[in-house]
Design a protein around this nucleic acid. Structure first.
Lengths: 211, 211
DNA sequence: CGTCTATTTGAATGTACTCAAAAGCGGTGG
DNA sequence: CCACCGCTTTTGAGTACATTCAAATAGACG
């Protein structure tokens, strides 16, 4: 019990420090006054996930979005044959949610869970909207986030439509070297839209032909 | 010359009437006062496209977004083998742009052209941002647009990752019956990410097995 | 009507998947 | 510290979904 409290304390302390990361992310897009920062932070709730722990499960309403302070989480979809398809990985500095469930506040089809022990700052949809009403800069911030996310989704869709698996893999490795370092290969395969077996063969092929 | 003027006049008149469609779209998401509506409309520029005419070409900076009043336009990408991949169709009531080029104001890889004679209302990025500054409701409107668009892109990505071509076709037909009616089959194929030949075979198969 | 483009059809091919089994690797408990 | 268990990765043979290429047919438009 004592240990548990100590853990929580240190986490709250940590969250305080780490929320610098969140504020830095905000400031990349909008300039906030000190009191505005405090106001925004007041809406953010720290949350901890252990590896393999769900943040959101299929069928749930995505009440909260998550900003990752540390660790790594993934947003994915399970098709009717039981295969996982990963929409997004999120490490330090990334947001994650089941966007359509979050926006429309209806049960969604996506799962979000932790690939590593992770620390999050979460924000509920109602708080987000309130924040947007109160503070136009935050409306702007979320508009920019959506725009950026949309641009990268478009790009990914184009790659999926126009490139074979091998080149999608090469692009992924080049674009997200940090992800490559810490993700197991089968997770990368689930992101690229191929089987782990096939990714293994692609890598084998690349290794042999580069000799 | 007289005819040309007459045509332009009638278009301006038409644009005046048709912009009702645009205002209705705005009001679906935010509530505007009369003077705000006028202010917004002042930023929108009518533009006409003939069938096959470009609105945007690969390599250009997407200075303007387009809201479609009538007709049909498509946003697409040409891969290095010369194949077209369609990101989005836009008919009456839809927006279209090369979003990443528009947002970052850098040369883009997408083309936009008209599949039918079309009437548009266009909005420049600078005007959009000015509008957002002046009028928080418009910031909200564009945030909502981005959110919606993002949600549907996510959905499409999931379908592409998890479903075979036949089912993607069935879903498309169910989701966008209006598009099915007016689009040539090869355009639908370019949207679904398959060859026109294969789409033809899918349709043949569906026709024979439903007997 | 003739031309140009879109659609259909068929045979051969290729990319990626399935299934099965082996090898590698990491964590956990004895 | 080593042995074992579960999970990830590799490897191989057979298969399936989708493409390529070619040619015939159908439709649209001037």
């Amino acid at each position: 019990m004592l240990r548990l409290l100590a853990e929580n304390d240190s986490f709250n302390l940590l969250a305080g420090i780490m929320s610098e990361l969140f504020l830095a992310n905000l400031e990349k897009h909008v300039h906030l006054e000190e009191d505005e920062k405090k106001q925004v932070l007041a809406f953010m709730h720290p949350k901890r996930l252990r590896k393999r722990q769900y943040f959101l499960q299929e069928g749930d309403v995505s009440t909260h979005s998550a900003f990752v302070l540390s660790g790594c989480i993934r947003t994915y979809f399970i098709d009717r044959d039981g295969f996982e398809h990963i929409l997004q990985f999120a490490i330090e500095g990334w947001w994650a949610s089941d966007l359509s469930s979050f926006v429309y506040q209806q049960p969604g089809r996506l799962n979000i869970d932790a690939l590593e022990d992770s620390e999050l700052l979460t924000l509920s949809r109602t708080d987000q909207l309130e924040l947007c009403e109160k503070c136009p800069k935050m409306e702007k911030y979320f508009r920019i986030l959506s725009e950026n996310s949309l641009a990268s989704h478009q790009n990914r869709l184009l790659e999926n439509l126009s490139l074979p698996a091998k080149e999608r893999y090469i692009n992924f490795a080049r674009k997200y070297p940090l992800f490559m370092q810490r993700l197991p290969q089968n997770q990368v395969a689930a992101y690229l839209g191929i089987t782990p077996e096939f990714l293994s063969k692609i890598r084998h092929q690349m290794a042999t032909e580069s000799k």
